[in-house]
Design a protein around this nucleic acid. Structure first.
Lengths: 221, 221
DNA sequence: AATATATTTTAGATTTGTCTAAATTTTAAA
DNA sequence: TTTAAAATTTAGACAAATCTAAAATATATT
C-alpha cells in the first residue's frame, strides 16, 4: 500500500499520458520523465509485478484499475497542495507546480483528508484541473476549447492545460485566469489568431495560446 | 546545498543527541536512527567529506558550523509543519510528529518562509520546542525541570521532552499541555512522585513523567 | 516478402544506502 | 601492563533506480 517516489512518478505520468494521448509508449514515457527507455522498461516490469500495470513486452502497457486508483490519489495530493500553496500561502500560479511535486509524495492519508477539509473540499486546483475527492472521483465539467467557442457568447475560463512558466507569465500579463469571463469577437484566418474581449477591452491572442485555454460554456462550474 | 533524506536525518539526529548528551557516539546514533553501526560509519565518512562533520575515526564526530546550520533548518521545517498540523489541521499533539518527519524533507526555502508567515511566525511548536527563525536562530526561554520547581510557586508548562504516544496519551488524560499553569505541593521521598495542583484539583504524578516536563518559572514566555 | 529503420528489451555496470561478518582500535579489568 | 571486552571501522555483498551498449522485436519501405 506504500510506493516509492519513483513508482509514484511513473504511475502519475502514465495516467496523464493515457488521458492526453490514449496510448503510452516506452519512449514517450521516458521523455516525459526525463529518463532513458531502458529505465522505463525496468520499472514497467516492477509495476506489472505489483499488478499496477498490464504489460506485454514490446506491445505496450496501461494502468490496471488498481494502478489508476493509486495514480488518482497521487494527483489528488498534488492538486490539493497546489490549491493550498496558491490560496493560503499566496504563491503565484506558476510557482506551485514544482513545490507540489515534492509534497505529493508525503503519503499520510489522514493528512490529505484533513487538508482537503481545511481547504473547504475544493473541486479544482489553481490551473482549473479537477481534484479527485477522497474516493478518487473526479468532477466532470462541460468544457470546450476556447477555439470552438461561438462568437459573442460569454464564457468562463475553467482550465489551462499548458502549465509552463512562459505560458503562465503570458496569462498573467493578459490578466487571464481561472474564472475570467470572456467572449470571442473574431477569428483571423491568416494566422488563426483570435480577437477576444474581457470586460471592456479587446485584444488578440495567438492560436497557440488559445489552444491551451478551455472554457465552460452554458454556465459557471 | 541539497541533501538526501538520509543525510538530513543523520544531521538532525546528531544535532539532537549533541544537545541531549553533549557527545555522540556511533552506537548511540545507530540506535537512534534504527540502523547499524557500520551504516553510521559509512555516512560519517560521507558527511565529513562534505564538511558537515568533524570526524576522526575511532574518536567520534560533531557537527561543523555548516552542519549545524543545516540541522537547524531541517528542525525549523519539522517544527513549522508540526505547528501547522496542530493549529490548522487540528491534529492531536501525538499525531503530528510522524507526519512532520516526512514533510520536513520538502526543501523549498520559499515554501517554509511563506508557511512561517502564514502561521504568524510562531516561536514554539506544539510540544513547546523552539522553532528556529529564518536565519536559524532559536529563541531561548528560562525553563527549569518541573522537578526543580519550588513548592507553592505557580509556573507554566513550556516544554515536554518525551514525545512518545504513551507519554502524550497520559498528558492528555491529565489535561497537561503547553501553557498549563500548575504548582507543586509536595515531593514524596518513597517513589519520588510529586503532588501537583492544576486549577482547583490536586493529584500526583510519577517522577518519570515529571522528568519530561519543563516549566517557565518567573513569567510566561 | 525481404530489408532497413525505429522501438523496445536485455545484459552488465554504477551509485546510494544499507547489511553481515571480520578486523581493528580503544577502553576497562585483572 | 597484559588481556578481555566493548566500540568502531573495513571488506564485501545486496536492493533500488538508474545508465550505456548490444541484442531482440516490431514497423515501414521498397
Amino acid at each position: 500500500m506504500n510506493y516509492t517516489i519513483s513508482e509514484e512518478n511513473y504511475l502519475k505520468a502514465i495516467y496523464h499520458l493515457q488521458l492526453e494521448a490514449g496510448t503510452v509508449t516506452t519512449n514517450v514515457l521516458a521523455e516525459k520523465l526525463q529518463t532513458k527507455a531502458a529505465s522505463v522498461t525496468d520499472m514497467m516490469k516492477k509495476l506489472s509485478g505489483k499488478k499496477l500495470l498490464n504489460y506485454k513486452p514490446y506491445y505496450g502497457f496501461s494502468l490496471s484499475p488498481e494502478g489508476k486508483k493509486i495514480a488518482l490519489f497521487i494527483i489528488r495530493r498534488h492538486r490539493l497542495w497546489e490549491f493550498f500553496l496558491s490560496e493560503k500561502l499566496k504563491f503565484n500560479w506558476n510557482e506551485v507546480h514544482s513545490i507540489a511535486e515534492e509534497l505529493e509524495h508525503v503519503s499520510s492519508r489522514q493528512l490529505i483528508d484533513r487538508l482537503d477539509e481545511f481547504l473547504g473540499f475544493p473541486s479544482f486546483d489553481p490551473h482549473g484541473d479537477p481534484i479527485p475527492d477522497s474516493r478518487g472521483k473526479i468532477k466532470n465539467v462541460n468544457k470546450i476549447p476556447l477555439l470552438l467557442l461561438p462568437f459573442h457568447h460569454t464564457a468562463e475560463v475553467c482550465q489551462v492545460t499548458n502549465q509552463s512558466e512562459e505560458m503562465l507569465e503570458l496569462l498573467q500579463h493578459r490578466n487571464i485566469g481561472i474564472g475570467t469571463r470572456l467572449e470571442v469577437k473574431k477569428h483571423f484566418d491568416f494566422d488563426h489568431s483570435l480577437e477576444i474581449k474581457i470586460k471592456q477591452s479587446s485584444f488578440t491572442i495567438s492560436e497557440q495560446l488559445a489552444k491551451n485555454i478551455f472554457v465552460s460554456y452554458e454556465q459557471g462550474i
